[in-house]
């Protein structure tokens, strides 16, 4: 049984390793891969799917 405070496990899409995500992770959230430091985007939660996040674009910001 999982609880709201349990960490979420997912596969790093670049290395294939299992990585731990915060329990309150959101779709659309950006996670720094603990393995490579690459920015990963949470695509879905059930199942948890990560993809490499889009590169920074020129019009991003405030």
């Amino acid at each position: 049984m999982t609880t709201d405070t349990d960490p979420v496990m997912a596969e790093d899409p670049i290395t294939g390793e299992e990585i731990e995500l915060p329990a309150d992770v959101e779709v659309g959230e950006i996670i720094d891969s603990p393995v490579t430091g690459t920015e990963l985007e949470v695509i879905s939660l059930d199942p948890v799917v990560l993809e490499e996040a889009p590169e920074l674009e020129e019009d991003w910001g405030e």
């Binding site: 959101e26 779709v27 659309g28 950006i30 889009p54």
Partner: peptide, 14 residues
């Protein structure tokens, strides 16, 4: 409206 959930959006959503 979003395309990326940063810490700012997480604070707001929370």
């Amino acid at each position: 409206l979003y395309s990326r959930i940063r810490k700012d959006e997480k604070l707001l959503l929370g």
